[in-house]
Design a binder for these strands. Structure first.
Lengths: 154, 154
DNA sequence: CCACATTGGTTGCCATGTCAACAGTCGGTG
DNA sequence: CACCGACTGTTGACATGGCAACCAATGTGG
């Protein structure tokens, strides 16, 4: 007996997933770049620094990494690029002399405030428009389940 | 009146999508790399060249690009890398002297035949295990709809 | 038949991501 | 206190992807 392959339905769903993944990422980056000059990675960092539970717009490098599930080197380089563009500022940590704070600058805040409405609108119009509550719930359930399996196998 | 944001449910679903996207991609690449030394991009190319409608394991460069929805430069570079590893071979096209065929080599066929079972098993176990037919159908419907919207807005 | 747009493919430059190595710091334990 | 392992962050080497410029070949309208 041979390998168990995917059913026809699964095959289509999986291909659809992969294609959607690629197309949506491309679209997000293109839109963000065009409307605000930000990459999706820039946007993700700015979202964290303007989150409700970050009232002062400041996080430690490692906190950014934990929140975004990014490698520390990725955070470091991303912050460096954004710092060079004036969106962020590094600040030494007095308590732990290894550490660095990342502060949102006025320019950074302006950038995400300018980018967010169009980005959110795009997500709503492309991703959620026409989706029933049941579909959204099903998607949520699927992602939670798959993420749990991914985490379990690590 | 302000911007229309996402509902709580949509917010969670969207964050879940983004995280799933990141985690699943990482997992796929790690697994493929570990079990067969292939990247997901390698695998995608090999899948096309071993597709049922490609009986001779040969495609033109541009056909690979169309099937995968990849930029031509991406195809070119990917093929170069795989050619250097002996998984593929380029062959000049007699009919159109600009063109190149890409031929699957024996090593390339062996590589995907060795990689596919574990990869498919992982997809089944992580992505589809525990999913009802309704969930798979809902996912398929969602991807089709979003892809249509993405295509429409281009 | 010729001028010109189009197509197929490659290349260079830049941005980004991973991994591994490193440097400095902290903290707990003997 | 001294040591050693864990933690924080940076860097360099390398792989990859997008974009634009480019070359060569094709085909098409006049």
């Amino acid at each position: 007996m041979g390998t168990t392959w995917l059913t026809e339905e699964q095959q289509r769903a999986w291909q659809g997933w992969l294609e959607l993944h690629a197309q949506l990422t491309a679209r997000i980056n293109r839109d963000l770049q065009a409307t605000s000059g930000l990459s999706h990675a820039d946007y993700a960092i700015l979202v964290q620094l303007t989150a409700e539970d970050v009232p002062d717009g400041t996080l430690r490098m490692f906190e950014l990494g934990e929140r975004l599930l990014w490698e520390k080197s990725r955070v470091s380089k991303q912050v460096s690029r954004m710092e060079a563009r004036g969106l962020l500022a590094r600040r030494d940590c007095a308590d732990d002399r290894r550490g660095s704070f990342v502060d949102l600058t006025a320019a950074g805040r302006a950038a995400i405030e300018s980018a967010a409405p169009a980005h959110v609108a795009m997500v709503r119009e492309v991703f959620f428009a026409g989706a029933s509550d049941e579909e959204v719930a099903a998607l949520g359930a699927l992602t939670d389940r798959v993420l749990a399996r991914l985490a379990a196998a690590d």
